[in-house]
């Protein structure tokens, strides 16, 4: 019963909704990065789940998920570096106070 595509889709859309809530509601830049990671995670879950189930189980989804995870790591590294630089320049990580990213 649980082993259906719908249950995985349900989990992944709930994770996506939580991520969207975080991106909208939070002001702390690091928290927004958490939310983006959760959204990417939900997308990866969908990639793998949709490639596992009929009509055509194949390996493509897993390959895409691997690329997606690697690029998410790059995104996190750059995002955290930007947050650090912004914190040094403005002494805050509140995105509503970071009006400009110029040092």
């Amino acid at each position: 019963m649980m082993e259906s595509l719908l249950s995985y889709f349900l989990v992944s859309s709930i994770l996506f909704g939580i991520g969207v809530y975080g991106v909208i509601a939070k002001r702390n830049a690091i928290r927004i990065l958490f939310a983006v990671e959760i959204i990417i995670n939900a997308a990866n879950l969908n990639f793998v789940a949709f490639s596992r189930f009929p009509p055509s189980p194949n390996i493509l989804g897993q390959t895409f998920a691997l690329f997606s995870i690697a690029l998410a790591a790059a995104e996190a590294a750059v995002g955290l570096a930007i947050i650090l630089v912004a914190f040094r320049a403005h002494d805050t990580v509140d995105v509503s106070q970071l009006k400009k990213l110029r040092g």
């Binding site: 859309s13 709930i14 996506f16 909704g17 939580i18 969207v20 809530y21 909208i24 509601a25 939070k26 002001r27 702390n28 928290r31 509140d94 509503s96």
Partner: peptide
């Protein structure tokens, strides 16, 4: 103190996406 726009609105937004 780091809540952005109205938290209720953002919860509703998330639920609408789901």
């Amino acid at each position: 103190s780091y809540e952005g726009i109205n938290p209720c609105l953002s919860v509703i937004g998330g639920i609408m996406v789901v």
